[in-house]
Write a protein that binds this DNA or RNA. Structure first.
Length: 262
DNA sequence: ATGGTTGTGCGACAA
């Protein structure tokens, strides 16, 4: 089964790009973040025509919002609010008989990497801590896939310059540690890095704010696909559709994908 | 050090 995770940055604005992702990657499941659409305004029919009639959507006006798209029937999973907010940053589905799929959109965290003066950064850290606790409490042996825009690039080769980004939100040691704690709390395995070694620089996001694409390639790997220990040996391939960042009217994120034997 | 761009939706705010 092929899984795609993509921060689409407005689903209504990028239906054509979504179709292209579906055509070029032929995924079985697509997890979207930042759909920026109320659930009632979600372009469900158009996406059904692309080949994904089965949809679980959690949207709100203007901001955030996540969705899981599937070719075959799926059931709504165990989703919840995080940090006591109804801000549509997580949705889950039960796929097949014994697999959970979790789709996350972690808060970006603002600009200042100090939780004492930046509420957004404090929110990000709290969210990561709650996700860690959740990961420790869920049953240990189930087949699970966790994807999303986690808004953290953990490794040196997940950013264009480790040194220059050490105090930039998304790559600070505090966040990297919090992400690592989340990951180890359940033994989550970084599927993309099981295929593409940490010695190779790979990115999934390039800022709109500087004209770095594709020239100077100042990217970060903010988007992730993790699998539970039960699926450790089941990741067969993975990658990032870098080209999508160069399409007309692109999202600032490229889709990431992984093939998992279920 | 600053500002750079995009999206929602029509004024900021978030990223």
């Amino acid at each position: 089964m092929r899984f795609v995770s993509w921060n689409i940055n407005s689903v209504r604005l990028r239906l054509n790009a979504l179709k292209r992702v579906a055509d070029e990657l032929s995924p079985d499941f697509i997890c979207l973040q930042e759909i920026k659409s109320e659930t009632t305004d979600f372009p469900a029919d158009a996406i059904a025509e692309i080949g994904f009639p089965h949809q679980i959507i959690r949207g709100m006006k203007g901001y955030n919002g996540v969705a899981i798209l599937a070719r075959t029937p799926i059931a709504g999973g165990d989703t919840r609010d995080w940090c006591g907010r109804h801000d549509c940053r997580h949705i889950a589905a039960n796929i097949g008989s014994d697999v959970e799929l979790h789709n996350f959109y972690v808060p970006a965290g603002g600009d200042e990497p100090d939780p004492n003066i930046n509420d957004k950064f404090a929110h990000k850290l709290k969210f990561l801590k709650e996700a860690e606790t959740w990961s420790r409490d869920i049953t240990p042996n189930a087949k699970r896939i966790l994807v999303g825009d986690l808004n953290i690039a953990p490794h040196e080769n997940d950013v264009w310059s480790h040194k220059q980004l050490l105090s930039v939100v998304s790559h600070t040691p505090l966040e990297v540690e919090a992400l690592s704690d989340w990951q180890t709390a359940h033994g989550w395995i970084d599927a993309i890095r099981t295929i593409i070694p940490e010695t190779e620089k790979i990115y999934s996001w390039w800022s709109y704010r500087n004209r770095t694409w594709p020239g100077s390639d100042r990217g970060r790997r903010l988007d992730h696909i993790w699998v539970s220990p039960a699926l450790a040996e089941s990741v067969k391939n993975a990658g990032i559709l870098r080209d999508a960042r160069g399409w007309e009217k692109p999202s600032d994120h490229a889709p990431v994908w992984a093939d998992v034997d279920l």
